[in-house]
């Protein structure tokens, strides 16, 4: 995806649209970036073990990416390869050398022992998926992302028949005045992927507003109005759920042909091995 190719290039995403802090954040990001880059560039391979399977990857590569290269799927909602990790959803939690840690923020190292596909971790991940369902308003039958949604696909993977928590039905607003896309906060899982990847004129189109229970995703309507069709599609694709959607699009794939109708999420990674 073109959007991410230059993520480690010259221009780095900033986490806030405020001009003043922009420079500071950029340089901080630069440091993180170079660190990651340095480790990857050193090109020394490390060996580690996931559920008894011996794996090899570049030292410093994030565990979820390294696992995928070895044909092991670790579920993830807030991360994709090449992205600076945020560790916000915790669905990738693995037991690494005996401790629960996020697979998307942990670089692999020599001799690491990782538990991934165990009943305990499956239960924990399923619980997180259930929490995400009840914390938002997820009316899958009326959602344009249904069938292509990663949260829903994890619900399928874990055969979530019903969340064990009470539905909170939180009041959330939809932002429809943002050019070619609209933002439906009812379905946002606060993964920060849009904040980290969608930029116009070098500025973030999306940002968080508020704190704690009041935290919500927000969109700069002026910047969003400048998105091209291609960028709008990329923004929609980067969102793991149906929170960012293109206008005048939707329900154009028949049921049965969508991404997760017949194929379980992660099966494309597991097939490789």
């Amino acid at each position: 995806m073109g959007l991410f190719n230059n993520l480690f290039g010259k221009k780095l995403p900033v986490e806030t649209p405020l001009d003043k802090v922009q420079d500071t954040v950029s340089s901080a990001k630069e440091v993180i970036k170079t660190d990651i880059q340095k480790e990857v560039n050193m090109s020394n391979k490390v060996k580690f073990i996931i559920d008894g399977k011996e794996c090899t990857a570049e030292k410093g590569m994030m565990l979820v990416d390294a696992a995928a290269e070895n044909g092991v799927y670790i579920p993830v909602l807030c991360h994709m390869k090449g992205m600076i990790p945020a560790g916000s959803c915790r669905v990738c939690t693995c037991k690494i050398n005996g401790r629960n840690m996020a697979g998307c923020t942990t670089p692999v190292d020599e001799g690491m022992k990782i538990e991934n596909d165990t009943p305990e971790l499956t239960e924990l991940r399923k619980t997180i998926v259930e929490v995400l369902f009840v914390e938002g308003n997820h009316f899958c039958p009326a959602c344009e992302k249904s069938g292509n949604c990663e949260l829903q696909a994890l619900g399928y993977k874990y055969q979530m028949m019903v969340p064990r928590f009470p539905y909170s039905f939180p009041p959330k607003a939809v932002e429809a005045g943002a050019g070619k896309i609209y933002l439906d906060r009812n379905r946002c899982i606060m993964c920060k992927k849009c904040i980290r990847t969608v930029h116009v004129d070098g500025k973030n189109v999306f940002a968080f507003r508020g704190r704690g229970a009041h935290l919500e995703i927000n969109i700069d309507k002026t910047l969003a109005a400048k998105l091209t069709d291609k960028q709008a599609q990329e923004a929609m694709d980067v969102c793991p759920v149906g929170s960012i959607l293109r206008k005048e699009k939707g329900f154009d794939e028949p049921i049965g042909t969508r991404k997760y109708d017949k194929h379980q999420i992660g099966s494309e990674i597991e097939k490789v091995s």
Binding site: N137, H138, F139, C140, P141, A142, M161, V162, P163, Y167, F169, P170, P171, K172
Partner: peptide, 18 residues
């Protein structure tokens, strides 16, 4: 047995919940 999304989570009628 709860059969279907409406029985399980309110479904489309629950769009009025907010």
């Amino acid at each position: 047995i709860s059969l279907g999304e409406c029985a399980i989570m309110g479904g489309l009628p629950a769009l009025r919940n907010g």
